[in-house]
Amino acid sequence: MWEEKLVIDPPYDFVRVLERLSIDPLKAVNIAEGTVKVPLYDKKKQPFAVTVHSIGTKLYPQFIIKGEKEKQKEIAIHEVKRIFQWDINLNDVRAHFSKSNLAQIFLEHEGTPLVLDFHLYHCLIKCIIHQQLNLAFAHKLTERFVHQFGQKMDGVWFDPTPEEVASLTYSDLRELQFSGRKAEYLIDISKLIAEGSLDLEALKHMTDEEIFKKLLPIRGIGPWTVQNILLFGLGRPNLFPKADIGIQNAMKKHFGLEKKPSPDEMDELSKEWSPYLSYASLYLWRSIE
């Protein structure tokens, strides 16, 4: 057993992080205790879990990370920092928006970080499952999928691997209430990953434009999916998904518009948000949740 204490720059509101994570029934979150269990993989791709425990406050954020095997400590700390974006100073983000047309929203949701999905593959399959579904059923379908084909260790669920999903048949997913087309997307894309035609790790070293060019030709991946991968899979800081209805509704409410803004109006209103468009998107979503 090992544990490591980390103190990060304020503000950082971990309560908001846990509240958002708890929406997903697959996440092992305990808001009262301030903990979440994170499923990870070591260098040999063996699964293991660590516990992230908040022992601080928004203005003095500090955490204890706990795990079982000492040899997994280095990769665990690296991954936890990446997932929870602890190397991003939210003071810089707050200062940028303090005199902007989103100043009030950023004051109300101060210290809300852009938290990443635990794994890039999970982000991808979640996006595919969630396409054109309401959130409640999307979570239920994802839960069925992981319970049926994934595994539970140390109190936390691990997704099935690309190789495991590639070995399934379309009817395996149809039995879980997947549409025929969505079953094809999920299995066929997993086959590309399993055979090495699609290297998800390589995406980390590409520009946003290169990732769009790489992913859009793949059947089942559209602009919305790529934008979500960039935002919640890779944590790119300057992304603004203008086609997202939630962002349109949030801007309509915040700016007192009679109807949802057009793409040109969104461009005009967001001129001063760069280079933190992703945080503007996140905070707009939070403003109507």
Score class of each variant (00 low, 15 high):
M153R: 13
E79L: 02
V29I: 13
D87S: 00
K213G: 03
V17C: 07
S54Q: 10
E163N: 03
A103I: 06
S278H: 14
F97V: 06
K259E: 12
N30T: 14
L215F: 04
H122I: 09
D92C: 03
R286I: 10
L176F: 00
F14T: 02
H130K: 13
F48A: 14
L116A: 07
K152C: 11
F212T: 03
H130V: 08
K140D: 12
F48I: 14
L141W: 11
F97M: 06
Y170N: 03
I189H: 00
E210K: 03
K27N: 09
S270N: 14
D264P: 11
S287Y: 14
A95M: 11
K260C: 14
G34T: 15
Q248G: 02
D264Y: 10
D159R: 02
F118I: 07
N134H: 10
P113Q: 09
E19I: 06
H119E: 07
S190L: 01
V38R: 13
G256H: 15
A136T: 15
A103C: 09
S197P: 02
R20F: 05
D208N: 06
E70W: 02
K27Q: 10
D92Q: 05
F63T: 02
N89K: 09
L141K: 12
H53Y: 11
V50T: 15
S22Y: 07
V115A: 05
L168D: 02
D9P: 04
K242I: 07
P223M: 05
I105H: 04
L21A: 08
P261E: 11
P263I: 15
Q104P: 07
I125C: 12
D159F: 05
I129S: 07
K204Y: 08
K204I: 05
E210S: 01
M266P: 15
Q248A: 04
D9V: 08
K69M: 03
S281T: 13
V115E: 07
I128W: 15
I129R: 07
L26F: 11
L124C: 11
Q148W: 05
F63I: 02
R144S: 06
E195T: 06
V80L: 04
G180Q: 00
H130C: 09
N89V: 06
P217L: 06
C127E: 13
A280L: 11
I187T: 00
L116H: 10
H96A: 06
P275K: 14
I23S: 06
D267L: 15
E143S: 14
L59H: 13
I23R: 08
W273K: 12
Y170F: 04
H119V: 03
I288W: 11
W285T: 09
S100L: 10
Y60I: 08
M1G: 11
E210F: 01
K27S: 10
T142V: 04
L203P: 04
P263M: 11
I55K: 14
P261K: 13
S287E: 12
E272R: 12
P160S: 02
L124S: 09
I229P: 01
K140N: 08
V29H: 13
G111T: 13
R181H: 00
A103P: 05
E268G: 10
T57Q: 15
T207R: 08
K260V: 13
E184H: 03
M153I: 08
Y283G: 08
V115D: 08
P11M: 08
P217M: 07
R236H: 09
K81M: 01
A136P: 12
Y12Q: 07
